[in-house]
Nucleic acid binder design. Structure first.
Lengths: 218, 218
DNA sequence: TGTACATCAGTGAACGCGCGTTCACTGATGTAC
DNA sequence: TGTACATCAGTGAACGCGCGTTCACTGATGTAC
């Protein structure tokens, strides 16, 4: 991770120096442009300024490249979610709102990562690293759910795992139906962020989590 | 719609007789097998037992075929949802549960339709018929939401449109993360149906819709 | 410090393949009279 | 009822293209001594 030279200064000399990274970046670029299907091994090589045979030094095939993109995606996703959640500070509700916005923000800002992670049909079993990275990202949601559940009265408290899955499904549902940058995005009378926030709040109220942290309103 | 001969008895004679339908069915088959990207115009022709030039008599290109698949999908989707909802009989909650199961059932039984409708990147603006069919399917959710909202106390009643979008996002989220038949499906400690049912019930409780129709439990 | 050598990363030419698309054509169907 | 003709749906051969993959190769890098 200590590349003294700028990754960007192209293939100087015979050896590229950082072709693997360049190919991953090329894939991201191409996926973002034309969807997860619209990118080829040869095109990635061309984009990186390298012969079509060169990628085989780093990836067995297209799928392995794709799985690597997904892996990176989950790693960045985890960082983004964890930063947004920030240990639930200053309170769980505020942090949860940030988390939701971070989720949608990631899907919108990194459509290539998002589709490689969730839509390209790459099985999580493709590699242990991939599975692990996926688990780690989900762990943020799980911790969130645990914090929320801890605020509920012990009787009738639902399993935190289920709550985490619900949060995930709601966020993914909104992101994938309305939060994408591509042409297939549905139009909405409100922003995806507002829609998800409302959905989450109503859900929390249903759980019995207090949703009015400061001003007593009733 | 009155084909006296069986659609299945292949291309007899020079004229196929029902090539358009056969191509749509071929597309469905191939999409279900290899994902929305993994099907080609030529392959559909081959599957239908016809020369590679024949499809051009019926579809301008691959995208037009795909949009047609999505159109059929929305039409069948609407029928399935409407039948499940059944006017909210015998009560809204029972009907809503049926609706959720029908949603997941459709996504699982018709992965090809589902991905053409929601994941193939076909813009709803591709044709007025497509947009219309999509609207009609969503209308079922909207009517459902209106029925539910009517059961709430008038003060603080949320817009039915928003509730409909929430129901959609939850169902789509669960379906697309956990309810698919392909290799990328995530494993779960419960069935997608149970997960969605719980999610919906908690959400309704948050809305203030009474979720205990028969036995008084409090 | 210099030299020999092993290893590695990328070359470039070549291949077979299937795709999308076109074209002039032809067999079948329907209709006017 | 029969005939001529227009229309339609599918043919099959051809094309150029880009892809995935292989191969013997070569230039660069690192290391042993």
């Amino acid at each position: 991770m200590s590349w003294s030279k700028d990754d960007r200064d192209g293939p100087r000399g015979y050896h590229h120096g950082n072709l693997k990274e360049a190919l991953l970046r090329a894939a991201l670029e191409l996926i973002a442009e034309k969807g997860p299907a619209g990118f080829t091994f040869a095109e990635a090589a061309r984009w990186a300024g390298v012969s079509p045979a060169a990628p085989y030094r780093h990836f067995r095939d297209r799928d392995e490249l794709m799985a690597n993109v997904a892996l990176r995606g989950f790693q960045q996703f985890e960082v983004a979610l964890r930063r947004a959640w920030d240990g639930g500070r200053p309170d769980a509700l505020t942090a949860l709102d940030r988390l939701g916005k971070a989720y949608l923000g990631f899907a919108r800002a990194e459509p290539a990562f998002y589709s490689a992670m969730f839509e390209a049909g790459i099985p999580m079993s493709a590699s242990p690293e991939l599975r692990d990275a996926g688990e780690r990202a989900f762990t943020v949601l799980r911790e969130t759910a645990e914090t929320l559940c801890a605020q509920m009265s012990p009787k009738g408290r639902p399993p935190a795992l289920m709550v985490a899955l619900h949060l995930w499904a709601m966020a993914h549902g909104v992101a994938s139906l309305f939060g994408r940058g591509d042409a297939a995005r549905r139009s909405l009378p409100m922003s995806p962020e507002e829609l998800l926030e409302a959905n989450t709040l109503i859900y929390l109220r249903g759980l019995g989590v207090p949703t009015m942290p400061s001003a007593p309103q009733r």
